[in-house]
Amino acid sequence: MNIVTPGELISEEQIKTNQGVFSRHGKFYSKFYGILNSRNDFTAVNALNGVYLPKREDVVICFVEDVKFSGVVADINSPYQAYMQTKDSRIRFEMHNVFAATVIDADSSQNILLDYPEKLTGGTVIRFPPLKIPRAIGRNASMVKMIKDLTGCKIIIGKNGRIWINGENQNLAKKAFEMISKQAHIPGLTERVRKSLEENNQN
């Protein structure tokens, strides 16, 4: 596993790359403390840590921070506040309600608009590093599906670093996600999580 630090030289020649790399005088450097991934002719640096920046179509887990006449202001675990219109919605929102929603607009002035809410009652919300959320979901949602099957819990994963879990075995699911958070970068994770859940089920 190749860990790179900010300002570290990645390539002296032109490469196809992602947002984790910047160029200066024709050379390419890492912009983050992250992992270097080179595949075919694509070189990417993926940051190991970072804040959640909302993008359109992200599903996020929100907390109602303020209720206004025609909408709610929501805390979406981002430096930017989010707003959702509730005039036409049949759902009534109150302070501190938890709900899942989709980001429908995230413009350059950092005004975030949400819609398609689903109120979440009961269960528990856990925090999870936003950049590692893809690991929690897994390829084709394989990881989260496995956890749902082995714990019988309802689970909704928010791209904003929050996971809602509801069910009798929610603490088991919680532990599984804690494991993923700590070991996201180590290969063979899915099997380890499966083993751990199966062992716990036997107890």
């Binding site: 630090t5 912009k31 403390y33 940051a47």
Partner: peptide
């Protein structure tokens, strides 16, 4: 700052 994931052009 690097540990926090802040983008930077160098330490």
């Amino acid at each position: 700052l690097a540990d926090a994931g802040i983008p930077m052009t160098g330490l």
